[in-house]
Simulated assay, not measured.
Amino acid sequence: MNKNEEEIVMDDDGMITNLPNDKMLAATLTRLTGKFSTPDETMQVLRRAKEARNFIAHEGASVGDISAVREQHILAHARLLRSAVLELAEGDNIVSQWGFHFEEPRQSLPQDLIDAYPRMIDGWVFGHFGNLLDEEVADSTAMTL
């Protein structure tokens, strides 16, 4: 970087809303969303999905020292992981809709699949737990080792 150049730092919203209109990504987002800027609610879902992805990648399997961890701690951690997977699925659902619209611009979105997708992912990933993750943690110290 030259002395005369300044480094510009933007958040996710700024990167999308400040794209030059003549660039391909800006035109694609405009076509997919019907307008240049993404609605706030959609951006919040995508931001939560990004944070959930980071949790899954960096902390998802970290339950602590396996010789000291107890059942309630594992279940409490699995609940956190389940929440993160659900948030990631909701973000993936949005991006998948954009991709579908891009690939099949004349087709209607498969609304039944879109509505069922987060529940399907939850069942696929956590179905083997049965009702264990639906119960509240009785021990308030379950998250401590």
Rank of each mutant, 00 (worst) to 15 (best):
D40F: 11
H77T: 04
A26G: 06
G60N: 09
S67Q: 08
K35S: 12
F102P: 02
P105D: 09
T38L: 14
L86V: 10
K50L: 10
G99Y: 08
I94F: 00
R31V: 07
K50A: 12
I94N: 04
S62E: 13
T33N: 14
G34V: 03
H101N: 10
S37C: 08
T28R: 10
V69N: 06
V85L: 00
A68F: 09
F55A: 07
L46H: 09
E41Q: 13
E104P: 03
K35P: 01
A61L: 15
G64D: 03
A52H: 03
V69S: 05
M43I: 15
H58A: 13
P105I: 03
A76W: 01
L75M: 03
A57L: 13
P39N: 12
H77S: 09
L75F: 03
S37F: 06
E87D: 12
E41M: 15
L32P: 06
S37P: 06
V63W: 03
L80A: 04
G64A: 10
F55P: 01
E71W: 05
M43R: 15
L80C: 02
W98H: 03
N54D: 13
A89W: 00
A76V: 01
S96Q: 03
E71N: 07
Q107V: 07
I74Y: 01
S62F: 12
E51R: 15
T30G: 04
G60A: 15
L75P: 02
L32Q: 10
L88I: 01
H58W: 09
G60V: 14
E59I: 12
S96G: 05
G91H: 00
S108M: 09
L80Q: 04
A68I: 04
V45M: 08
S83G: 04
V45G: 09
R47G: 05
E71D: 05
E104V: 07
G60D: 08
I74N: 00
L86M: 09
L80H: 02
R31E: 13
L75R: 08
N93K: 12
R31W: 11
G34M: 11
S108V: 07
V45R: 12
L86P: 00
D92W: 06
R70K: 14
T30D: 04
R82C: 00
L81V: 07
E41N: 10
E87R: 06
G91L: 00
S67Y: 04
Q97H: 01
R106A: 14
G60I: 13
A89I: 02
T38I: 15
H73L: 09
K35Q: 12
A78F: 01
D40W: 07
V85T: 02
D40R: 11
A68R: 13
T38K: 06
Q72V: 07
E104K: 13
T33G: 07
L46I: 14
R70N: 02
A76P: 00
L81H: 00
G91D: 00
H73E: 10
K35V: 05
E51I: 08
Q97N: 05
